[in-house]
Design a protein around this nucleic acid. Sequence first.
RNA 1: GCCGAUGUGGCGAAAUGGCAGACGCAACGGACUUAAAAUCCGUUGGGCCGUAAAAGGCCCGUGCCGGUUCGAGUCCGGCCAUCGGCACCA
Length: 853
Amino acid sequence: MSERRKPYPFDQIEPKWQTIWEERQLFHALNPGEKNFDPSKPKFYILDMFPYPSGAGLHVGHPEGYTATDIVARYKRMRGFNVLHPMGWDAFGLPAEQYAIKTGEHPATTTRANVAKFKAQLKRIGFSYDWQREINTTDPRYYKWTQWIFLQIYNSWFNAKANKAEPISTYRGPAPDRVRLAYVADVPVNWCAELGTVLANEEVVDGKSEIGGFPVVRRPMRQWMLRITAYAERLLNELDGLDWPEGIKLLQRNWIGRSEGAEVDFSVAGIDDRGYKIRVFTTRPDTLYGATYMVLAPEHSLVDLIVTEEQWPAVREYRERAARKSDLERTELAKEKTGVFSGAYAVNPVNSERIPIWVADYVLLGYGTGAIMGVPAHDERDLVFARKFHLPIREVVRPFGGEDPIGFVGEGIAINSPVIDGLPSREAIRKITAWLEELGLGKGAINYKLRDWLFSRQRYWGEPFPIVWENEKHRAIDQNELPVVPPPLDDYKPIGTGEPPLTRAREWVRYSDNALRETNTMPQWAGSCWYYLRFCDPQNDKRFVGEEAERYWMGGDKPGGVDLYVGGTEHAVLHLLYARFWHKVLFDLGYLSKPEPFQRLVNQGIVLGEDNQKMSKSRGNIVNPDDVIDQYGADAFRCYEMFMGPLEQMKPWSMRGVEGISRFLARVWRLLMTENQAGEWELSTRLKEADPTSAQTKITHATIKKVTEDIESLSFNTAISQMMIFVNAFTNAETLPLSAMRIFLVLLNPFAPHLTSELCQKLNSKFGDNVSDTTEQKWPDYDERFLAEDEVEMVIQVNGKVRDRMKVSILATEDEVKSIALANARIQRLVNGKTVRKIVVVPKKLVNVVANE
RNA sequence: GCCGAUGUGGCGAAAUGGCAGACGCAACGGACUUAAAAUCCGUUGGGCCGUAAAAGGCCCGUGCCGGUUCGAGUCCGGCCAUCGGCACCA
């Protein structure tokens, strides 16, 4: 790159102001109770999704959201808010561990280096984070409290009557270990041999690990689980009070997947009638009379008990094959339904009919009861299955329209169903459910797709569990033994048997003579589930967050505490759902003041490469912020990130675009500065303490209004457009009124803080007001009076087409406007020979003359 | 398959149901310059009529088809395309 002359000296200005801000700690937020804390100011908590500090450093996608929040943070400070705007590191996770496996270097070392790199990059952009609140999930002083929160979850149960979590001590039933919110279970898990670990469903994509793309198989293992399903209903309902994009709420609703229906008991018609009952879940109990067969999931516990002698070999073989299927195979083979007859029959409780019981893997053990009734006439999957295995098909719903009842899954009229014949589906469902309940054959039930959260990982680089095992039983270690710090290892490789790497540290594992430590670690989500709470009070070593600090920053009159949370859609379900879950547990236990963590959520769009493709190393289209800043400066970088287009939209990067923005900032600079003969910049002589013209006042106030409203609605691109219009309007002005320039610098400050601070300082040195720095100034108010005009230009339309314009006093009545329009020569010509049918007047906008032959 | 988002100049985009394309990029022309860069000024959706050239005039145009309305990029119905999510959840 050739050494180009800088359009303005950003390379000197930017480091200078960053140093000043650092020295003065201008962006440090005080907590209630601290010296100089001003309780009269309202609070504003604005949060970014904190990054995983990878070795690759930032690319221009990261700072998009960060710039948006920084603008809002700076704006809110000027508006007189106490602003909490922190940043930290989500630093546990697989990449550092993989690197450790390769190099033997401790993950903490790589993490430290990566954090330093990320932090330096962020600082260069001039973000106004309160770095005194920086946190790192891998810091023992942080994960001590992650472990502490786990213990709260472990020591709680969900009281369904109260619909909330309570300390396990309030549980009166037997076997408290069975109701804890954190529990151990042997569950079929997604085992990834390559990574040597179990993965959550969400971390498996198309049967392969999300990280690395390695094959994943199902395998039963003893795992820690968190009972998030207890909160399904609240996680669903309490979305309503949040200001989140509807699309994201919908994603969560679908993920939780509530469905209402009934559980119905079918008895097994065995020769020796052992009285087994099989419970099925259905959303359509009104189709009970259409059940012509039943299906059990291959893993269903009753399969063993009901299978007949002659069917046993076939069933056993089928089960084994199903168990061996990887997720990948299951997905790929989803189209072709398989199954095997068990030899047994069930009795349909509504009509005592004997129907065959099949075993098929299209029924999932983990959902509902793991058993279904097959109603081929009114369920697509059942229809496919029935046709393949030649099972009878019986219509029990007649569509309202004339559609074919076979395969009809909508609502209609119940037929061939004595108890509910002639009733529309909804009523039929209600009636048959009541009927089943009355006879003790079933009951209304609700099911969720949401599963409990698989919470353990066989990894090194994660939070160890504060749990020890004694006589095959788990128990919590004492709170004052926290944090549980993982031991250093020589070898971080997975053991391969499914045993976690921590097993290697024999000394560490031996907790006492008869107790061993839990060697699993927590998943990466753990640390990010509550970091927003720690930011409120990051140095507190007595509590995970101080009560007063939590009440202040996480308070307010809305259900959610964080006022604005910005991040990518990729966390729409998992992170946001897990964090809400932990928050609710802590809320129930009385540690928090609001039931939800994040009141307003905004997703920034993905930044694509210049080639309109997703940025990736292999495409070679990654743009590094450092390069952009070297060439154009941080202010231009920030402004371009915002000028690209709407925050939430996906949009491509363009270096030409950065250049355009950089030209704009240079125009701002040269508006107030001129270069003298010696090539030095000095204040323009056009700057005067003069009254602005009325046109100048008007555009100034229009700009205040537009920029203010656009920041509030996060429409930063149009705010910048308006400021460009402002600058264009003043570029050739003979006199630059100081007052207008000062206002403009404040408006531009959140976007280009370095440039505006420098210019403000230059103005102060000459005009000597008692103003220290733009970042500490008040946000200007606009006055509607200056925006109003005496006259407006109105459009005259004939039949909806613009034909002319006219200047009209804003005081003109509708009738006056009409007659001026009709008197217009051009309009007369067009209307000539036609009859005017109607005249529409939109005040201050237009007149539409409707005329025809 | 189901759900959601998006679709406007050469490009990024803007428009409480009221002048489509603000602002920026690119391109072109001009000024400044020995020259270039930078800067400043101007032109720039398409087609047609008009004129010596202008001025001026008309028509079409926001993915496609239809509707509501005096008036639709915007509202309603139906399609198409791209992107994202879910995917045997009974």
